[in-house]
Design a protein around this nucleic acid. Sequence first.
DNA 1: GTCTACACGTGAATC
DNA 2: TGATTCACGTGTAGA
Lengths: 239, 239
Amino acid sequence: MFNRRSFASYDTSSTDHLRFISDTVLGQMGSGPFGLQAELSKLTAQEIMDAKALAASKSHSEAERRRRERINNHLAKLRSLLPSTTKTDKASLLAEVIQHLKELKRQTSIIAESSAIPTESDELTVDNEEDEDGRFVIKASLCCEDRTDLLPDLIKTLKAMRLKTLKAEITTLGGRVKNVLFITGDDQELNRDDDEQQQPHEYFVSSIQEAFRAVMEKSNGDESSPGSVKRQRTNINII
Amino acid sequence: MFNRRSFASYDTSSTDHLRFISDTVLGQMGSGPFGLQAELSKLTAQEIMDAKALAASKSHSEAERRRRERINNHLAKLRSLLPSTTKTDKASLLAEVIQHLKELKRQTSIIAESSAIPTESDELTVDNEEDEDGRFVIKASLCCEDRTDLLPDLIKTLKAMRLKTLKAEITTLGGRVKNVLFITGDDQELNRDDDEQQQPHEYFVSSIQEAFRAVMEKSNGDESSPGSVKRQRTNINII
DNA sequence: GTCTACACGTGAATC
DNA sequence: TGATTCACGTGTAGA
């Protein structure tokens, strides 16, 4: 452990290290011809072991240097992607990356909700809305990878929940699909005038969200179909 | 440097370190009462210096540990923000962050171009388009911080370039403004039927872009006006 | 047994 | 000067 430390300094060459060892050992031991011989052979063994250890240590430190280099290159790339490069500090850089990432995520989610074009990331929002006649309508917007059974599954789900689709905007682009559905229940279920209005509607919203989530996740699990017809765009409005 | 190394191991206590020094020094020096006394006082000085050095080293290593902790916390937060948490590796994590950041940036820029809502980041695009009558129209979309003189400056610029605004969509939100202008030149300048059509239009596009860029940058330099009326939204269509 | 990734303490530099 | 940041080589634990 002691001599391991001795070549830990940055640019001590192998020969310097060995000379240091031979000096100390020869100084402590007797200088007779036999002892010297023994010590010399011992030294050779030491040399070999040290050479091996040094080689191992060298490759180790080099590997570690490569790793550091990779990480720092990525950090530099991140720094170049940020708008404000005020702080050069590493931790602050990462903090700004986090902030920027959250901001971008916020923007995209806000814009994506009000857009009819499907995005790369899966998305599901279900909200209460009021139509022009003041009746309650639920607007459900879901975006996911397209598959042949998606629409039938959605219809089946809606039928099972006794819901009626007033209007559907279905847009597919690049193998992905975005559905914006305007849903209402049977008249005896929704549009009641008692003072417990909010709670039942929130219940409907969450149960619809849950059901649609299941349909979307079933879609994700279906990896066997290769999504044959891609990169073609269709835009369908069902009223 | 030698004894600095000696307490470099992780949990060697201060007393162990000092005992090691006293052993070696006493072994090398004479053991007379005077020499011992001198060595003892020296030792005390050494002890004090070592105690100081140890304290410094301790605070240093603790500070370094805090720094590492901060960085790793940020990395963990980044990992939680990513959609795919497949690789736990640090460098790969940063690589995925870069990828994700680029993807989000791409999405927002694409969506922002086709949206009438002003975004947080400045933006300027100028493109050729054809209107319903087949005439050439230039669509210019610029988004920047709002100021009172922005619109007059734009109008002045357009007038100076002998351009006509067919239609303008101006939307302000939260102190920022987005202008989408549909521009055409005088009829003798644009809409010619010779085979050099593309080049002059590209010239117009780039010169318009340059002029608008100047207007936007002048806007950025104007920090004196406090942008009094913020957080109110207006939507104006000029046809 | 080699390889890889991490945390650690330390020397040096910058402020 | 002390505080803070970085690169370095090393110990060590999983594949």
